[in-house]
Design a binder for these strands. Structure first.
Length: 425
DNA sequence: TACTCCCGCCATGTT
DNA sequence: AACATGGCGGGAGTA
């Protein structure tokens, strides 16, 4: 049976039926699970009672918080997906989402089918470190700042997999971060090169999560909007549909990461555009949400959307599309994007929340954008770029990076010039 | 209206 | 074949 079967159908559903009635019920001592709400303890929880269907109560972020609340305890070791789904009153499918993200940041590990081991927040630093290192490693061997391991993914467009089959790009998802215990090595014929199936994994939520995180870890991007992130991860020249899908996934991921306090939602000071800022301090979120114990089956709400009967993906052709436009993503372009983000922050100076990374360029003061002429500003910006170039470069420890940076600077500059010309016209 | 993002169909992978 | 995973995108809630 599939997810739907595990779905606590509206109504009784939770009758226990399961092995241990105990397990079936949110354990009394179990941490309280929360429900989003404007604080008024009353309303929200009950809300569902009255067809006040609230999306927020079902958000992945909240689910994640509850998941963590449920398992972040000493005595927890093994986590069963079914059990989790049951306790949290959601369908299995959602648990996969959560678990994939959590695994990506080292909070748990998949041990076997249906079985995960809780590592806790203590596992995060190491996971992040590993991510960062991996990216750096890759960086030195690839022309793009951000590990392209997956960005390539999409670029290779959805159908011409294999292009990167034997690629030296090894690890990519290969390690999928974990999987230590089972499989991996046991693959019957453990082909040394990637399987076509990897193609699928390349788009996994877990991998996407890691790359999203890397964006922060390596780029020192203070904040980034999901569009930007998607663009960076995808590379230029992608069908809108691709973009939209990626962004959707990023929303999912961002919500989970937010609930872990790894990132936080803010706004790009200038554009007002929603964006996320890296916090890096994974921990249980302590918001003032109402604490209520989650009813065994939260799905009791009448499904406004009448799912299940819906024929959504009719004609769906999963792998399709993308007329595979230009699969060849210009690496420099990728870099250019990264820069754009960075540059925008610099240029617009309004970004009070921009945080430079460890290699904070001494000369890159954030200039306050008052009302002086744009021209002046532009001139100044260009200069800043130069300063940046100087102050940045020495920071790189390895030569490859160093050279690499040179390219970027050039690209940035030319990009910037283009931009200003464009705007001028 | 645009932005968010839940939901579950169904392809793909595993046993 | 049955079951486990999880990509994906429609379209409903929210702002």
């Amino acid at each position: 049976m599939d997810a739907s079967a595990a779905t606590p159908a509206p109504g009784p559903s939770f009758s226990g039926a399961e092995s241990s009635a105990a397990a079936a019920q949110p354990p009394a001592e179990a941490p309280q699970l929360r429900v989003h709400g404007a604080g008024s303890g009353s309303g929200v929880a009950r809300a569902c009672r009255h067809h006040a269907y609230s999306r927020k109560q079902k958000s992945l972020g909240l689910l994640c918080s509850n998941f963590v609340a449920l398992y972040d305890r000493e005595d927890v070791e093994v986590i069963g997906l079914d059990d989790a789904a049951k306790r949290l009153g959601v369908e299995r499918r959602r648990i996969y989402d959560i678990v994939n993200v959590l695994e990506s940041v080292g909070i748990l590990v998949r041990r076997a089918k249906n079985r995960y081991t809780w590592l806790g927040f203590g596992g995060v630093p190491a996971a992040l470190k590993e991510l960062k290192e991996r990216a750096l490693r890759k960086m030195s061997g690839s022309p793009v700042l951000l590990s392209m391991e997956d960005s390539s993914t999409a670029n290779l467009s959805d159908d011409e997999d294999d292009e990167k089959l034997g690629d030296a790009d090894e690890d990519a998802e290969s390690e999928k971060l974990s999987q230590p215990v089972d499989n991996t090595s046991d693959k019957p014929d453990a082909p040394s090169c990637r399987l076509r199936s990897d193609h699928r994994k390349e788009k996994s939520l877990g991998l996407l999560t890691q790359n999203f995180v890397k964006l922060f870890l390596n780029m020192e991007v203070g904040t980034i909007s999901l569009d930007e992130a998607a663009r960076l991860l995808l590379g230029e020249g992608h069908a809108d549909s691709n973009m939209r899908t990626k962004v959707r996934r990023l929303y999912d991921i961002a919500n989970v990461l937010s609930s872990l306090n790894l990132i936080e939602k803010t706004q790009q000071a200038d554009t007002r555009k929603p964006a996320f800022r890296w916090l890096g301090q994974a921990k249980r979120k302590q918001d003032n949400n109402v604490m209520v114990s989650v009813p065994p089956s939260m799905k009791a709400m009448p499904n406004k959307r009448a799912f299940g009967t819906d024929l959504t993906n009719i004609d769906n052709k999963r792998g399709k599309l993308d007329s595979a436009a230009e699969n060849k993503v210009k690496l420099m372009q990728g870099a250019g994007n990264i820069v754009k983000t960075f540059e925008r922050q610099l240029v617009q100076g309004k970004r009070s929340d921009f945080v430079y990374g460890p290699f904070h360029p001494a000369g890159a003061k954030k200039h306050e954008t008052d009302d002086q002429t744009v021209k002046q500003q532009e001139r100044k910006n260009i200069q800043d770029w130069e300063n940046l170039a100087v102050s940045f470069r020495p920071q790189y420890q390895n030569q490859a990076l160093n050279d690499l940076f040179g390219h970027y600077v050039e690209a940035w500059k030319s990009w910037y010039v283009d931009l200003t010309q464009e705007t001028a016209s």
